[in-house]
């Protein structure tokens, strides 16, 4: 187990390092003069030199990269080009908002998607199964940002039931929760479909196993067989799916945050991209990548841990 965990973590770190390096080189190789691009045509040479120095772009690339990595290890992600604030401070301010949104989205998707998948299996090849199947595919197909715009239009602008923008009043849990409903719905909807399908497919596989036949041969009801005997095993592959899907959740959050004007890492990155604020973009992409890679690594370890068979093999 330890050996496996070590290997998995090392691979995660390798992927992170590689991604960082490619991004760093890419930013370095920007066609033209990055300072000129960022500042526009009317910038004076002094302004450019100042900006370059602030971005640390006036030194050879390998020095830049190594100091960049060393700084990251110290938790230093550089300075915001425009406001001169620490990027790490800005990110740690906005990150919680995004996390709450992401977990709320995945949470309601799990709460609905897993039972839907189970009912699909209980009533397999029937009308119910078919309807759940078509709904799932449709939920997956419709882009989450379109869902976001439409629910904004219907529930916030037309019906005025829920707030259209922001993350709610600070300190007021109820208003924060109300502000969370629409974006979390938009992001989670596709996941309801994904989870229903995944649980269905994975569970049908499990339902073919011998121990399910034993449970049935002892007269347990199909509902009980599905929820008690098949579900736990079927969820093992779903764990890794959720982790891999975190990438999609983050992408969804970017759109939802922009559309609902919610403070968060997505909104931050978007504004940094449009204002060519490289350190912020770098920092935000890096933090989300670290977050994402560590979630997938944790999911793999968790998956190995939940399955007692795998757990024993790995011991």
């Amino acid at each position: 187990m330890l050996n496996y965990a070590f290997k998995r973590v090392m691979l995660g770190i390798l992927i992170l390092l590689f991604t960082m390096m490619v991004m760093y080189v890419a930013v370095y190789l920007i066609p033209g003069d990055p300072a000129a691009v960022a500042l526009g045509p009317r910038a004076t040479p002094e302004m450019k030199a100042d900006l370059l120095a602030r971005m640390g772009l006036d030194q050879p690339i390998y020095i830049q990269f190594s100091s960049f990595i060393v700084n990251i290890l110290h938790g230093d992600l550089g300075l915001d080009v425009w406001s001169n604030r620490e990027v790490s401070a800005i990110i740690s301010e906005t990150m919680p908002n995004t996390m709450i949104l992401a977990f709320a989205s995945i949470g309601w998707a799990l709460a609905l998607g897993i039972p839907l998948g189970c009912f699909s299996v209980i009533y397999r090849n029937s009308f119910v199964d078919r309807i759940i199947g078509i709904l799932s595919v449709s939920f997956i197909a419709i882009p989450s940002f379109v869902v976001a715009i439409f629910v904004l239009l219907i529930f916030a602008v037309q019906l005025r039931w829920l707030p259209a923008i922001g993350a709610g009043e600070e300190g007021d849990i109820l208003s924060q929760a109300r502000a969370l409903i629409l974006p979390a719905f938009a992001i989670g909807l596709g996941w309801v479909g994904y989870l229903a399908r995944m649980v269905r497919a994975s569970m049908l596989e499990v339902m073919g196993e011998q121990h399910i036949r034993t449970a049935r041969a002892f007269g347990l009801s199909e509902t009980r067989v599905v929820f008690r005997y098949a579900l736990a095993i079927s969820l093992i592959p779903v764990i890794s799916l959720i982790a891999v899907g975190m990438g999609g959740i983050i992408s969804g959050s970017v759109f939802a945050e922009i559309i609902f004007a919610r403070p968060g890492i997505g909104n931050l990155t978007y504004n940094a991209v449009t204002s060519r604020n490289y350190p912020v973009v770098m920092g935000a992409v890096m933090v989300t990548t670290v977050f994402y890679v560590s979630i997938t690594v944790m999911a793999d370890l968790l998956m190995a841990y939940t399955d007692p068979r795998v757990r024993d093999v790995l011991k």
């Binding site: 991604t19 890419a26 990438g247 983050i250 992408s251 970017v254 991209v273 990548t289 994402y292």
Partner: peptide
């Protein structure tokens, strides 16, 4: 595939 698609796009 370990970069969230939209983050990669924005980068």
């Amino acid at each position: 595939s370990s970069l969230p698609m939209i983050m990669f796009a924005m980068a």
